[in-house]
Amino acid sequence: MKIELEDLTKRVLGTGDFITIDYAKCNNCDCCLIICVMNLWRKKEGKIYIVDDYQSKCLECAACYQICDAGAIKFQYPNGGTGIVIEKG
């Protein structure tokens, strides 16, 4: 059974980044690549990055922030009234 994830979330799009990476701290452990349910973290030419449109896909679980023992991933919930809307949680 193939489930289309894109159809399964609603959100009020906000402005401004709420997840950022500090390359001075990233040690390329790749933990963020595994933990993100939506697969928003990627690696290209040895460098970790988050996809450009993460704001329209992120589930706001903060797993990438929590798993990053190097403290390279900064996370703050999106501004009040924006971001994911969970209707059936």
Partner: peptide, 28 residues
Amino acid sequence: LNRVINLKYYQRLLKILDAKPRELQSHL
């Protein structure tokens, strides 16, 4: 999670319940 959903038994349950995925949520 998809391994649960794809159990034969589970697929049968989804079918008889006429169930459709509606939302995906992830939390710590």
